[in-house]
């Protein structure tokens, strides 16, 4: 099935701060869309809007043509998984129990055989089988991030929203997780939207790139279209050279005075 998300003209204000200002975008299934932009540009807020965690003061998010405000949160939870930017500081559960929280939208009391199987598969997919009986609080930052990705997968979502999924990982695990995300997007035809800081990884792993600046879309398109020295200078205030062989590579030169 092909899920389509349409974000139409959303605006979010926290008090006097405009976190998002008239953002419109269409996201297609089977594609990875990455959101880039400096700190505070509104990446997290955009993901939260798509997930219905933050209600925009204006504008609408449609999931397959349906206004998400009209979809019950629990129904939405069966279709969308969200991996937050910050893992909880403290969670007194084992890894298995934590990933099993992803079954919350489906269970009423006991975990059925199918629930348990889904949890196991999710853990295998991100490669955390060996952590099953460890306590979440005793894990490293990267391990926690993987547990949360597994939890989102246990929701069996059609849409996967990831907020800086690689920020706590070493270079090997960054590649592993992004490969996994790409595989899931292809195999299960997932719609993947992720906020990510590393422009080089973003360019390698995304089909579409959205560049945010001050709550507005500054540029959108393929990584090659978006990652130009001009755009990066304008949005980040950094002078860069772009190499394109074999992969696109952003090489920072210096801060624009």
């Amino acid at each position: 099935m092909a899920v389509k998300i349409v974000v139409r003209d959303i605006t979010v204000s926290y008090g006097s701060i405009r976190a998002l200002d008239g953002v419109s975008v269409e996201l297609e299934s089977g594609k990875i869309t990455s959101i880039v932009g400096p700190n505070g540009a509104g990446k997290t807020t955009l993901l939260k809007c798509i997930n219905g965690i933050v209600r925009p003061s204006a504008g609408v998010v449609f999931l397959d043509g349906m206004d998400i405000r009209k979809i019950k949160q629990i129904k939405l939870a069966r279709r969308m998984g969200h991996v937050p930017q910050l893992p909880p500081l403290h969670l007194p559960l084992t890894v298995f129990e934590t990933v099993a929280l992803g079954r919350r939208p489906y269970v009423s009391w006991v975990l059925s055989k199918k629930d348990i199987r889904t949890v196991e598969e999710a853990m295998k997919a991100v490669g955390i089988e060996h952590l099953s009986d460890r306590y979440f609080d005793e894990l490293s930052g990267g391990e926690r991030q993987k547990v949360l990705i597994a939890m989102a997968l246990a929701q069996e979502p059609e849409v996967l929203l990831l907020d800086e999924p690689t920020s706590n990982l070493d270079i090997r695990h960054q590649l592993e997780i992004l490969n996994l995300i790409r595989r899931l997007a292809r195999e299960k035809n997932l719609t993947v939207v992720m906020a990510i800081h590393d422009l080089n990884l973003a360019s390698r792993f995304s089909d579409i790139m959205i560049m945010l600046k001050d709550g507005r879309i500054f540029a959108i398109g393929s990584p090659r279209e978006v990652l130009t020295p001009e755009n990066i200078r304008e949005v980040y205030g950094v002078e860069v050279t772009i190499l394109t062989n074999p992969h696109l590579l952003v090489v920072p030169i210096g801060v624009v005075p």
Partner: peptide, 20 residues
């Protein structure tokens, strides 16, 4: 019981798992 379980993750995460 399940709502209280997911609330351990914080309000935002609880919402995205279907709990109000």
């Amino acid at each position: 019981a399940w709502d209280l379980n997911v609330l351990m993750m914080g309000d935002d995460a609880a919402k995205s798992l279907g709990t109000d």
